[in-house]
């Protein structure tokens, strides 16, 4: 079977950052593979190593710069990558339906049996694309999966869904399916030097809207970010000042007042 993994390069803000317009200043952002997607890539690669998946393809929506991040997923064992980008996507805050338009077109080309992606992207935190994609392409789905066992012969994925409060739901999902992957599902590997070398030769196919049979109208977003600001600190904490010794001294005093003792 074929596994398609949706991956995203996400931005993380430095401790000190400035806001320019409706986004954080480019110079105050660091880019990396989305943490949740790292677990999805690992799950797919493990399926390949177990002989269940024949091919693992990653798909991302991102400008050319993201290829460095995509290569990390290839270095960990994905076979090849598809990167979708178009000028029409530049500067807009893509809504869920637009992303689904793009992924739908890639699914039509790749015809995967299983689509894996992270529960959410660390930067925008929507948590919606995978389940919306499943609806569009007529796949079954399960969101927030933290245990996965694929029975390819029976065409079923046995999953646990991590509910709130330390409860997991046990579910069997018929394939083809879209599963959104929670952190902790597995232990994502580090790319080996050999993997990194091999990744240089793996294909990253760049596609624009016309390659996918889409137009700019298809991906017009219904959402606009109109402002961004730092939330006002609601802190009324007593901040303990001084060097490590002085602050530990004051904190010890506080803790003893609260009745803490060995």
């Amino acid at each position: 079977m074929k596994v398609l993994v949706t991956v995203k390069e996400v931005a993380e803000a430095d401790d000190d950052f400035a806001i320019e317009g409706t986004d954080i200043a480019e110079s105050d952002l660091e880019y990396d593979l989305n943490e949740w997607d790292d677990y999805a890539v690992e799950a797919a690669v493990q399926l390949a190593e177990a002989g269940i998946a024949d091919e693992v393809v990653t798909v991302t929506v991102g400008r050319e710069r993201t290829e460095e991040t995509i290569r990390m997923a290839l270095a960990k064992g994905a076979d090849r990558a598809v990167r979708v980008w178009d000028e029409a996507l530049d500067g807009a805050f893509a809504d869920v339906a637009s992303k689904v338009d793009l992924f739908e077109a890639v699914v039509a080309e790749e015809e995967p049996d299983l689509v894996l992606g992270g529960v959410q992207a660390a930067d925008t935190g929507f948590g919606a694309t995978g389940v919306a994609l499943a609806e569009r392409i007529g796949f079954e789905h399960a969101a927030v999966v933290n245990d996965l066992d694929v029975d390819a012969d029976a065409g079923v994925a046995h999953v646990h869904r991590e509910l709130e409060g330390g409860v997991e739901e046990l579910t069997e999902v018929d394939l083809p399916a879209v599963l959104t992957v929670q952190t902790g599902l597995n232990e994502p590997r580090y790319a080996s030097l050999r993997g990194i070398r091999q990744a240089q030769r793996k294909e990253i196919a760049a596609k624009d809207l016309s390659d996918l049979g889409l137009t700019a109208d298809d991906v017009e977003s219904s959402l606009t970010i109109t402002s961004m600001y730092e939330p006002e600190s609601e802190s009324d904490a007593e901040m303990i000042e001084g060097d490590a010794g002085e602050s530990a001294d004051r904190l010890a005093e506080v803790l003893r007042e609260k009745g803490v003792s060995a």
């Binding site: 803000a13 409706t22 925008t124 606009t224 970010i225 600001y229």
Partner: peptide, 16 residues
């Protein structure tokens, strides 16, 4: 809603 791991808040307008 929040973005960037709760470091900022944004306002998002929805068309329609």
């Amino acid at each position: 809603r929040e973005m960037y791991g709760s470091k900022v808040e944004t306002t998002v307008d929805v068309a329609g």
